[in-house]
Design a protein around this nucleic acid. Sequence first.
DNA 1: CAGTGGTCTAGACCACACT
DNA 2: GTGTGGTCTAGACCACTGC
Lengths: 263, 263
Amino acid sequence: MITSPLPPGETSPAANDNGSAITPSFSPLYQQIKGMILNSLRLGEWKPGEAIPSEMDLATRFRVSQGTVRKAIDDLASEHLLVRRQGKGTFVATHAEQQVQFRFLKLVPNNGNPGSEGPAYRDIVQCRRSSASADIARALALRTGDAVLQARRVLSFLDTPAILEDIWLPAAPFKGLTAERLTNHQGPMYALFETEFNVRMVRAEEKIRAEPATQGHADLLKIAPGTPLLSVERVAYTYKDVPMELRRGYYRTDTHYYHNRLS
Amino acid sequence: MITSPLPPGETSPAANDNGSAITPSFSPLYQQIKGMILNSLRLGEWKPGEAIPSEMDLATRFRVSQGTVRKAIDDLASEHLLVRRQGKGTFVATHAEQQVQFRFLKLVPNNGNPGSEGPAYRDIVQCRRSSASADIARALALRTGDAVLQARRVLSFLDTPAILEDIWLPAAPFKGLTAERLTNHQGPMYALFETEFNVRMVRAEEKIRAEPATQGHADLLKIAPGTPLLSVERVAYTYKDVPMELRRGYYRTDTHYYHNRLS
DNA sequence: CAGTGGTCTAGACCACACT
DNA sequence: GTGTGGTCTAGACCACTGC
């Protein structure tokens, strides 16, 4: 509760006139700038891969100093929404760059580095339209029965299947997505989402468990039923924490491992 | 224009007079400050939990402006080596705080939040001195045959065993560590390492796989042999990327899951 | 109240990339 | 050379904590 000490000039500071109890009660200028940049990103004013205006330009636009814009951009860059490149500019992050092709795929071959196996072979096993079950709906912030797209694919490295994934997407934002488009597309699926549907995945949460392979999983991954698999349930979010994908993956961990850095 | 405000007399800026070919060729002041703070941390000038000098004090000591010290501290804080607390000061991070008790333990109960099960029960099954095998030595940057301490423990939540861990430590830095001390100690093991051995774990890398439980694992975790377990191999590092612990954990994932955030 | 970190500004200069 | 991000400074003021 309390006191908004901000006298603010014209840059309207996200007024907190609600009646709810515990408000942050203070919002630094750079956070407001950050919010405005975020909005432009969400609305597609600047597209993935493109450069955003220079710091000076933005400072002028928002009527603040360059340092304030700088701090806002620093924040967004540390969240991997923007990428700074000295001497060139600041760019909207994308999943289409070689450098970060597998930012969300933490599976690494036992011998070698990420990507050392060459490109993954993607085999779309299934792609259909259905309606959301209760748990699918909950994960995607939909209602039970809402239309969803469901796909199943197998990723292989060096002719060895390594990952089986079931993917659910809300039908509305992905209108027009077909098995053909998935099959014909080269590169990361998230890059396709960016270019074709203007959906950019920004972060994700994973729940990881060890589970025995079912007969169905075993057939597709060419392993024995009952073999322990890494079960990876992922919910991926766009800007503003809107969930846009549920993915249930099963990873073989005889040839690969899931790598994680704690800090 | 007033020309070089920095008389840079004494704060020697890491002169690059070497003849070698590809050097970074430029090291910002704040990075050098960061390195000096890092050294003080490593040498124990400020201990975990203690406050470091104020930004102004450090600025005076290093003959730079507050802003430069600030940037150095920002970096270290983002790496979780320091913790800023507005109005109070900047503190050396520690594993002993309630808030971050389980910063390196990503296992979460299926229903509930981290820590919602109350304190973990730790049962030291074994603790002995031995010599490093080839792979243990490699992980800890030792030589094969060097002295190591090896411990095995079971962590239980609500009377249900959930984790079995084998831990290897280089003997030298942990001289005097006994089963009794491990057993009698309350709280995170990494907190014990800080207070008793001045070893602070700063980051870690994990390799995660799914593996069937052996008979030995099954007995200790009270599950059936062959049950899929999450195998988590962790190498933990102190300052300056020195490896100080190898840990092989086996997590039950029927009651819990491993949580990971991708961004 | 004084002391700490946090924000904001304004200006100068440096390193890098393109042209 | 011009324009971009990156560094550094100096000073003002704000917000939070604890005496």
